[in-house]
């Protein structure tokens, strides 16, 4: 027993040399798989968030006064639930729903466990973004669609979501970046990914090089997502698409 303990103690001592930092050459091998984990985690989350958030946002928008399915009572209740989801800081949300997470995924650590609270926070966030984007669409278009004989679903699709698409993509960009941030927080419960590397190596082991590497990776990822989002917004907006060639500020000729 004591022999075993002494072996362990020696092991720890050898594992904690004066310089226990990850050698620079090994950093990519540590960081890149973690980045892939992060992207998978955020990717899965965002797919679910969009699939649920878009219909939910459209529903909330149209349950409100003046909407297509006006129902103040239902609007209030859904709105309240969404607000609760929005008001909890992610760390607290994540911790507070552990039993639920375990019920869904059978575990409370790892990527699967992180996805559950991220999806909940993401849906609440995105519902509001979609709702807000739809509010920006001129109500005349809904009237045009109704007068043209559109069904409620056709109205939502063509007069609301389609017209709000640039705003929704812009919101999606913001949301995705927020999810990358949440994934880092989820790293603290061993979810893996960049956040996990940053916490275990950079924070707990004071490995500044790893910390710096994760920061650079995160900044680059977020910048890429933003760039991609901006590009997509421009592509979705006929008005902006035209100005693409930088200096050619040619105005349309009204004839």
């Amino acid at each position: 027993m004591s022999a075993a303990l002494s072996v362990l103690a020696t092991g720890i001592r050898t594992a904690l040399p004066t310089n226990n930092n990850v050698p620079i050459a090994e950093i990519p091998a540590l960081v890149f798989p973690a980045l892939i984990d992060t992207l998978i985690m955020v990717g899965i989350v965002m797919v679910i968030v969009v699939l649920v958030g878009v219909p939910l946002g459209a529903l909330v928008h149209n349950l409100a006064r003046g909407g297509l399915f006006e129902n103040p009572a239902l609007h209030q209740s859904i709105s309240w639930i969404v607000s609760i989801g929005r008001s909890l800081p992610f760390l607290i949300l994540m911790a507070s729903i552990v039993p639920f997470t375990r019920f869904i995924t059978g575990t409370n650590i790892g990527i699967a466990a992180a996805v559950v609270p991220m999806v909940i926070a993401g849906i609440a966030f995105f519902t509001r973004i979609v709702e807000n984007s739809l509010r920006g669409v001129s109500p005349t278009l809904v009237r045009v669609a109704r007068a043209s004989g559109a069904s409620p679903l056709q109205i939502v699709r063509t007069a609301q979501l389609s017209e709000a698409l640039p705003a929704i993509i812009g919101g999606l960009t913001i949301n995705t970046i927020a999810m990358i941030e949440y994934s880092a927080i989820a790293g603290t419960i061993g979810a893996g990914g960049i956040g996990y590397v940053a916490v275990t190596y950079g924070y707990q082991r004071f490995d500044n090089t790893v910390m710096l590497a994760t920061i650079i990776i995160l900044v680059a990822t977020v910048a890429t997502v933003q760039l991609l989002g901006d590009r997509l917004v421009r592509l979705a907006t006929p008005h902006a698409r035209e100005r693409q060639p930088r200096r050619a500020k040619s105005m349309p000729v009204p004839g």
Binding site: A145, S148, P238
Partner: peptide, 29 residues
């Protein structure tokens, strides 16, 4: 409603659709 055509004030076009796509709306519906 399809039996009554309505011309709205000039902000009644869908900004992300071309002239032809705007005209096609009622047919699409």
């Amino acid at each position: 409603r399809r039996r009554i055509g309505t011309i709205f004030q000039s902000d009644g076009l869908y900004s992300r659709r071309t002239a032809a796509q705007n005209v096609a709306l009622p047919l699409e519906y």
